[in-house]
């Protein structure tokens, strides 16, 4: 049973696989429909712009496959950074475009005259009881992003991060987990979080 790390030309797949190797999780970097259908877990990493990411997914019909596997077959899904943002209804980077719409909401630019953008560096997340991310309450993770996900339904927010304002740091809803931060780059905390994801859906 492998984890499919989706390759769609938006980077950081190698770092994710390296982290899974350390955890002893079998994984495959792939953009192939059959591989993704056969996988037990779907991981959507990525850095870069929203519109470019969606265009790449669409060009290889990966948008359709991901929606099918995650929404219909309820496969455990983990989105990381751009991979979290792409599950939104709408993105705005650099122009407005449709997302995968697994979680309703809009991804917009961080605009705050009092803070530097991008939000870059280690920051602690806040999560409340009974959520997956509660184990990591007040732990530091590595963030690097200029856009943030405004989640429509507060119940789907897994954790927040304080950077002048409160922003969504993670999403949890049914079989969908997603992080704005990079667990694969967050040393021990990050590896533990990834490990918990696989244990949750073992």
């Amino acid at each position: 049973m492998t984890a499919a790390i989706i390759e769609y030309g938006m980077g950081n797949v190698a770092s994710v696989q390296k982290a899974l190797n350390v955890l002893g999780i079998d994984s495959q970097i792939t953009g192939n429909t059959n591989d993704i259908k056969a996988a037990k877990y779907i991981i959507l990493p990525g850095v870069g712009s929203f519109a470019q990411g969606m265009e790449n997914l669409r060009n290889s019909s990966l948008d359709r496959i991901i929606r099918e596997e995650v929404l219909l077959k309820q496969k455990p899904f983990l989105g990381i950074c751009l991979g979290m943002q792409l599950i939104a209804t709408t993105g705005t980077e650099p122009h407005e475009s449709h997302g995968l719409n697994l979680i309703e909401g809009k991804v917009i630019k961080i605009q705050d005259p009092n803070t530097r953008v991008p939000h870059l560096g280690w920051n602690s997340i806040t999560s409340s009881a009974n959520l997956f991310f509660d184990n990591f309450n007040q732990k530091d993770f590595y963030f690097i992003h200029s856009y943030h996900f405004q989640v429509s339904n507060y119940n789907k927010i897994g954790a927040t991060v304080d950077y002048g304002n409160k922003y969504v740091a993670a999403i949890q809803y049914e079989n969908i987990l997603a992080t704005q931060f990079h667990p694969e780059k967050s040393q021990e905390n990050g590896l533990n979080l990834l490990d918990n994801f696989f244990k949750l859906y073992a």
């Binding site: 980077g11 850095v47 870069g48 980077e93 991008p118 200029s146």
Partner: peptide
């Protein structure tokens, strides 16, 4: 930065 995002 248009292609990979400013953060990169």
């Amino acid at each position: 930065s248009d292609f990979f995002g400013s953060q990169c």
